[in-house]
Design a protein around this nucleic acid. Structure first.
Length: 860
RNA sequence: GCCCGGGUGGCGGAAUCGGUAUACGCAUCGGACUUAAAAUCCGUGACCUGUAAGGGUGUGUGGGUUCGAGUCCCACCCCGGGCACCA
């Protein structure tokens, strides 16, 4: 391919020219060539929204693209793919409004995103493009769900969701604003609905422990640690004073303080509230429960300052000393953690202290506070006191020893057990939506399930999944793999069913079927039942999967995107493995990254992937703020449209500017003036190569030689730019190239080879310009195939060095000295130095600290 | 409240291992080129003091360690992010 014939830096001609070349040449195709070392660099794929590419997208994408191009130059077989996370709520809302199928709107948005991304010259292997809404893709999302199902990691349960009685619809969190529906402003309430749930808690321990194996930002690791929230302690059973009431189990991290438990608290939603409430307290408890239920999550935290509660009228027996302790109901205890009940130890827990003070409950110290302690609850370490009864004596023991002793005693006497508790909850995996992957399950009755079980056995999975409604129990039959994908049916309306189910509940011919449990074949029940033992009556699952599902494993599909037999061939999974670098926003620090790790570990356990973690190295690009220093938003009108920048300055300028703004991870404001600076730099590159008539500049020649200091700078630059690229420090790599170009500009003649080296370093950053000039200088495209300039350490060795003179730690002057200078010579040079000498005059040098090659500090 | 990250010129930022603080870029001002403008090139570029040479101060604040601190330690202030009655 020839270069363009533009006389000046006409990026509007040059950029499309080389984009066409790359596309036709398939320059960035990643062949499955197992002999070469691989490098897999991944972007978080975008949700193709209707508003098009946001300036934040090309920030991360440029960073990975530079690294991908650099790694290709260093000889790696680079996999750099892109795709679309295309299921999602906005497309569904658009469908509800317009009546058009969400797929058509989604495809339009994808086409726009693809156009915008291609205009930026990213080196993606477009043959590997994926789309989570493509049945050929989501077939495997459904398949992975079935693997989870069969492992007993999927189940159904009643879970509270936002329900809007007016809209007769389930709402997502983001559709609820200030306790009202986003659309129409109607009141919403929490309502229990049957949901699919994934047992991520079964992997909690490994998800936590394996964080040590990944190279991630510390803050992200900590967020995951906090989210998983592991804590060690004991589960203790308190017998109730009224034996008929049974017992109350609590989780505590401080079993050593059991002697200080003076009351108990259960959550307002606790199942034993009714049992424990004595007749005289029923009215008060009912009122309190209603108040608690009416509070939204927000109010509950807002009102957290003043604790409130109500006595049930019942007592429990403290297992260590037989003391009668009252059982209270209070909303500072939540049902979602531990057992939903606590033993309250006001002396060693500030929350319990606050509550005890309000309701005048007794406080017994069981850890001796330090003499100067002036606070309320004492949570520091100290010797146990008031902690002996019968054969049990903790007195004098510090917290750790006391815990060990009490847990041993609890276990020996059968009153409690050591217990590890997690904050992590199981993953609510269903949405009452149309635009998502259908859950590949058919519900059948008990007899039909038994028949299927008898025939298929273990193929139905480890656990039965069932639920009861209106006195009938329904059993989940997983679709056979061969029946996948289970595609979305056409529906007349994208509005929810009105009964808390998705719009799929109205697709009667799809929903209500004669179902062959062996083949997965289905016929609408409006047709006669086909003949055969394995045909049963079934109702399909109407829930669809959340948007997380498709993004949980997409990085694996890129390895083998066309495979119709498997989600990824084992030899490709082995070769490409998982991404060597994953770049995306910190907003996904917890959920996406945790869910993907969970799925990956399940696939690892089943032997489908070779590595137990999906993302070895992770990096978060920072947010780009508007010109005004605040977050870009349409309402503020400070949004930067990448299309406009490309039209005005070119993609290379945009790429360079995004990287020159500051450190990749930093939050930084957009500055339209700054973009002029990098654009000028690219124009300067052009001018150094091409003269006014569009010919190669006469100053460039194959015969020219580089002066030693310029040669030294060139090789230092080669080293630094390479190191900066590896470490994702693109801002300093660019300034290095600017310094180098400024130096070359001052030379009377430039060796052609030096400019070629410069262009190869520039190519990952500004690939279109580099490609164009490379060819203009007589080389063959693509510059990407030309390798990386060779760093020669011998060229960076100088025989002189600038030595700094300090007197008593203060800079007083410097001099260029031979590298082999001696201390005595330096001392003489300092004394003779016009600026340094006066500071030494008449004073003996008591000590000299000499940092070779840098400075000498003379103490007088 | 708890857990992270960060405070450096007029602005974005650099200083990677404790060794000349402010690289590179923007903006400013001055100059060159031009009939003119644009473009380009050269120079300027923290503060106080001084005619100048120079001297002093300076990386959020206050201490400390060190021959030497933007960098390490202690305390505090401010900004950003995350979590939040998690027993």
């Amino acid at each position: 391919m020839k270069a363009t014939n533009s006389k000046d830096y006409d990026f509007l001609t040059i950029e499309p020219h080389w984009q066409t070349f790359w596309e036709q040449d398939k320059t960035f195709r990643a062949p499955d060539d197992f002999r070469r070392p691989k490098f897999y660099v991944l972007d978080m794929f975008p949700y193709p929204s209707g508003s098009g590419l946001h300036i934040g997208h090309p920030e991360g994408y440029t960073a990975t693209d530079i690294l991908a191009r650099y790694k290709r130059a260093r000889g790696f077989n680079v996999l750099h793919p892109i795709g679309w996370d295309a299921f999602g709520l906005p497309a569904e809302q658009h469908a509800v409004k317009t009546g058009t199928h969400p797929a058509s709107n989604t495809q339009n948005n994808i086409a726009n995103f693809r156009r915008q991304i291609k205009a930026l010259g990213f080196s993606y292997d477009w043959d590997r493009e994926i789309d989570t809404t493509d049945p050929k893709y989501y077939r495997w999302t459904q398949w992975i769900f079935l693997q989870l199902f069969k492992q007993g990691l999927a189940y159904v349960d009643e879970r509270p969701v936002w329900w809007c009685p007016e809209l007769k619809a389930v709402l997502a969190n983001e559709e609820v604003v200030d306790g009202k529906s986003e659309i129409g402003g109607h009141p919403v309430e929490r309502r229990n609905l049957r949901q699919w749930v994934l047992r991520i808690t079964a992997y909690a321990e490994r998800l936590l422990a394996d964080l040590k194996d990944v190279d991630w930002p510390d803050s992200t690791k900590r967020m995951q640690e906090a989210w998983i929230g592991r804590s060690e302690g004991a589960e203790v059973a308190f017998k109730l004073a009224e034996p008929a009431q049974g017992e109350l189990k609590v989780f505590t991290t401080r079993p050593d303080t059991l002697f200080g438990c003076t009351y108990m608290v259960i959550a307002p939603e606790h199942p034993m509230v009714a049992t424990l409430t004595v007749p005289g307290q029923q009215a008060a408890v009912a009122v309190y429960q209603r108040q608690a239920a009416a509070k939204s999550d927000l109010e509950r935290t807002d009102l957290a300052k003043n604790k409130s509660g109500v006595f049930t009228g019942s007592y429990a027996i403290n297992p260590v000393n037989g003391a009668r302790v009252p059982v209270w109901i209070a909303d500072y205890v939540v049902m979602g953690y531990g057992t939903g009940a606590i033993m309250a130890v006001p002396a060693q827990d500030q929350r319990d202290w606050d509550f005890a003070k309000i309701y005048a409950l007794p406080i017994v110290r069981t850890v001796q506070p330090t003499a100067d302690f002036a606070g309320e609850a004492f949570v520091e370490d100290g010797p146990a006191i008031n902690s002996a009864h019968g054969d049990l004596n903790l007195n004098g023991l510090r917290i750790e020893a006391a815990k060990a002793a009490i847990i041993a005693w609890l276990e020996r006497t059968g009153r409690g057990v050591r217990k590890v508790n997690f904050k992590l909850r199981d993953w609510l995996f269903s949405r009452q939506r149309y635009w998502g992957e259908p859950v590949p399950v058919v519900w059948v009755n008990a007899e039909d399930y038994a028949r299927a079980k008898a025939k298929l056995g273990a193929a139905l999975g480890k656990n039965e999944v069932s639920y009861a409604a209106n006195g009938v129990t329904h059993y989940a039959l997983p679709l056979p793999d061969t029946a996948l994908p289970l595609t979305l049916p056409e529906v007349k309306s994208y509005l929810p069913s009105g009964a808390g189910e998705s719009p799929l509940a109205n697709a009667t011919e799809w929903l209500d079927v004669w179902y062959d449990f062996e083949t997965g074949a289905a016929v609408a029940t409006t047709e006669p039942r086909p003949a055969g033992e394995s045909w049963v009556h079934g109702r399909r699952e109407t829930n669809t999967m959340p948007q997380w599902a498709g993004s949980c494993w997409y990085y694996l599909r890129y390895l083998d995107p066309q495979n119709s037999e498997r989600f990824v061939a084992p030899e490709l999974a082995k070769y490409w493995s998982s991404p060597d670098l994953y770049v995306g926003g910190a907003e996904h620090a917890v959920l996406h990254l945790l869910y993907a790790r969970f799925w990956h570990k399940v696939l690892f356990d089943l032997g489908h992937v070779p590595d137990h973690e999906p993302f070895r190295r992770l990096f978060h690009q920072g947010i780009i703020l508007g010109e005004d220093g605040v977050k870009m938003s349409k309402t503020r009108g400070n949004v930067v449209n990448p299309d406009h920048v490309v039209a005005g300055y070119g993609a290379d300028t945009l790429r360079l500017y995004l990287m020159f703004l500051g450190p990749l991870e930093a939050m930084k404001p957009w500055n339209p003036k700054g973009i002029e600076g990098v654009h000028r730099f690219l124009r300067k590159v052009w001018r150094e190569c091409i003269d006014q008539d569009g010919a190669v500049h006469a100053r460039i020649s194959a015969d020219a030689t580089l002066p030693p200091d310029a040669e030294k700078l060139l090789h230092e630059s080669i080293k630094k730019v390479g190191e900066d690229f590896e470490a994702l420090r693109f801002n300093t790599a660019i300034s290095t190239l600017m310094i180098l170009l400024n130096a070359l500009q001052k030379l009377p003649a430039i060796p052609r080879s030096t400019l070629l080296d410069f262009l190869r370093m520039l190519a990952p950053l500004a690939p279109h310009l580099a490609e164009e000039l490379w060819v203009r200088l007589g080389e063959r495209p693509s510059i990407m195939a030309a390798g990386w300039p060779v760093f020669d350490a011998t060229k960076t060795i100088a025989d002189t060095v600038t030595m700094v003179f300090q007197v008593n730690g203060k800079y007083r002057g410097d001099a260029v000295v031979p590298v082999a200078v001696t201390e005595a010579e330096l001392l003489q040079l300092a004394k003779d130095h016009p600026k340094v000498g006066p500071h030494l005059a008449g004073k003996p040098v008591k000590r000299a600290i000499w940092v070779k090659g840098k400075l000498i500090n003379l103490l007088v």
